[in-house]
Amino acid sequence: MQRLRPSTEGTGEDRGQVGIGTLIVFIAMVLVAAIAAGVLINTAGFLQSSAQATGQQSSDSTTNRIQVVGMTGDHFTSNSEVGVVNITVKRAPGAGNVDLDKTTVQWIGPSGSYYQLAAGGAQGEPDGRFVVSTVQDNDGSQPVLNDVEDRFTISLDLGESQEINGATTFGEPLPEGETATLRITSPAGGMTTEEVVVPKTLSGESSVTL
C-alpha cells in the first residue's frame, strides 16, 4: 500500500512564506516613507529660507531709508530759475548703512521725470548724475551713511549749463513758484519722497530754502 504524504496546508511552512511577503511589503513602505520625509524636510527648509529672505528684504525696504534734513536752491539763471538743488540727508532712525553711490534719485518736475545715479556710482545710462559732498563725517565713510551723525549733500544740476564739477545735467531749471517731487530710493529699496517748492521770488537772493 502506498503511503500518502501529509498535506502541508495550514502548517508553519505556509505561515513562514506569508511572513516573508509581509516583511518585504513593510520594508518597501518604510523606504517610501523615508524618501517622502526627506522630500518634505528639504521643501520645508527651502520654504523657511525663502520666507526669511523675503522678510529681511521687506524689513530692509521699510527701515533702510534716507531722511532729508534740508534742501536749498542756488546757481540762479538770468531768468530767475534755480539751477542747482542741494539735498542734505542722513540715515533714517533704525536704518542700517546706506551707500549713496548705489542710491537712485527720481526727479519729477515741470519738464518731465528723470532718474539720477551718483557720479561715482553704479553703471548705467541714467538721465543725469548727482554729486555727493560731505557736511559731517567723523570716520571718513563718504559716500556711505554709517553713523547717525553723518550728513551728506546730494547736488542735482538742472538745465544744460553745467554748474557742478562731476555732475551730469538733466531737465530744465526750476522757475519761481514752481514745484517738483523728489524720490530717493536706497539700495535696499527704502523710498523717501519730498516736495521741492521754489519761492515765488528769487530776487536779491543767492540761495534759498526749498
Score class of each variant (00 low, 15 high):
M1I: 10
P6C: 11
T8Q: 15
T8Y: 12
D14M: 11
G19P: 05
G21P: 03
V25P: 09
V25E: 15
I27W: 06
A28Q: 14
A33V: 09
A33M: 12
I35T: 15
A36P: 10
A37H: 13
V39H: 06
L40V: 07
S49F: 06
S49N: 11
Q57H: 13
V68A: 03
T72Y: 07
T77K: 06
S80Q: 11
E81F: 03
V82Q: 00
I87V: 10
T88Y: 03
A92Q: 04
A92T: 01
K102E: 11
T103V: 06
W107G: 00
L117F: 11
A119C: 05
A119L: 05
G121R: 01
P126I: 05
D127C: 05
G128Q: 04
P143L: 08
V144H: 04
V144S: 05
L145K: 02
D147C: 08
T153P: 07
D157C: 04
D157N: 07
D157Y: 02
A167I: 01
E172T: 08
L174P: 00
T181D: 12
T181K: 11
L182A: 00
R183L: 15
S186A: 14
G189E: 14
G190D: 06
E195N: 13
V196T: 00
S203L: 06
G204K: 00
S207Q: 08
T209W: 04
T209F: 04
L210Y: 00
